[in-house]
Design a binder for these strands. Structure first.
Length: 333
DNA sequence: CATCCACGGGAATCAGCGGTAG
DNA sequence: CTACCGCTGATTCCCGTGGATG
């Protein structure tokens, strides 16, 4: 039933993209100077999750590679690599300048110096989920380096700009913005059809079922593909060579929760305890939350460590924090 | 206004791991 | 094989900051 599982991964970049030509062209234009050996204009891709921002960025960069002989590219997901160190390190990876770099022994600005000193071919860096960056200074560091082109990806413009200081805001204010909307139903169906065509055996799923998936995904291609993948897996398990309507229904909840569940599963027992407390109690301040935590575990970590956990879980969008300093409260999402 | 106290950055410390000299 | 070294990620210690509280 499953012919090519890679195609059913949402991060798979297809050879051809459906319905996003305007966005591809706009992004290509910002990168055009690279063909003449200059750096591209910085661009900012905005839109809800699953609207194709990451996919289009990778696709466009990939196409650029086909046209430019010598070019370096790097994709950085700031959700995972959210410190300045990691972002710079990933860029050095792309331009082969990582030798001898160690967190302790390397002075902080050694990394930036190396990126600055780089004089090889143009390098395109995709910074996905930039609003998750903890140290936005790195954007300032990278801005207008002659051999680095940046493609920034974020959900909402104000999430991004709220983190930035004035000088960076005014600089990025002028960069090219490309907005992505949620996929309408028919486009989502077309995307699913293409994935099913390449990833599944012939006639494994009908148009009705694809529409059902697209509808449940509510414009989010990532969820849609996740549901399709789950449905295919379920069909495989029960030895069926066709994905029925019932199977789709079964696959919807899993597909929707998959991303969240994956991050919850990654939590350590202590983190999980905090997460459960918030889910049971609702909104809490640090005091009561820490008390509940003390009651719930054997060898409690310190308050400072708990703060680290909480900020990490907020980072992963598992919980929500409002207010600052003493007024801060935590609540489940 | 004085005091309180959580926040979060940074340095120090700890614990586990892999490599290696003896 | 063992002792030791260097590295890393996790945790803790320290502390300046700033809103809340009375």
């Amino acid at each position: 039933m499953i012919r090519d599982a890679r195609v059913l991964q949402s991060q798979f970049v297809p050879d051809d993209v459906e319905h996003r030509n305007a966005e591809v062209n706009a992004l290509s234009n910002t990168l055009k100077p690279i063909m003449d050996g200059h750096s591209g204009e910085p661009s900012l891709l905005l839109g809800p999750t699953g609207a194709g921002k990451t996919c289009i960025a990778r696709f466009t960069v990939e196409r650029l590679r086909e046209n430019v002989l010598d070019i370096k590219t790097q994709y950085v997901n700031c959700w995972q690599d959210y410190t300045r160190f990691k972002v710079l390190y990933r860029i050095l990876e792309a331009i082969d300048r990582t030798v001898d770099i160690h967190r302790r022994s390397t002075p902080k600005d050694e990394l930036l110096d190396r990126v600055r000193a780089y004089d090889g071919p143009q390098c395109v860096v995709i910074l996905d989920e930039v609003d998750q960056l903890q140290e936005n200074r790195v954007l300032y560091d990278l801005y207008q380096l002659p051999r680095i082109s940046m493609i920034l990806i974020a959900n909402r413009e104000r999430d991004l700009f709220s983190l930035l200081d004035d000088r960076l805001t005014s600089r990025l204010q002028t960069c090219v913005r490309i907005s992505f909307e949620k996929y309408p139903l028919d486009e989502l169906v077309a995307i699913l059809k293409a994935r099913a065509h390449w990833g599944l055996s012939e006639d494994a799923i009908g148009t009705n079922e694809l529409e059902l998936i697209a509808d449940a995904a509510a414009g989010d291609a990532r969820i849609a593909i996740s549901i399709l993948r789950n449905a295919a897996r379920l069909a495989d398990q029960c030895g069926s060579d066709r994905i029925s309507t019932d199977l789709v229904h079964d696959a919807v909840p899993e597909g929707r929760d998959e991303v969240r569940q994956k991050t919850i599963d990654q939590l350590t027992p202590h983190q999980r305890t905090l997460y459960d407390i918030l889910n049971d109690e609702g909104e809490l301040e640090m005091g009561p939350l820490y008390d509940a935590y003390l009651d719930a575990v054997d060898a409690p970590k310190t308050r400072r460590t708990v703060r680290n956990y909480l900020s990490k879980m907020e980072h992963y969008r598992l919980i929500h924090a409002d207010g600052q300093n003493r007024a801060r409260t935590y609540r489940p999402r």
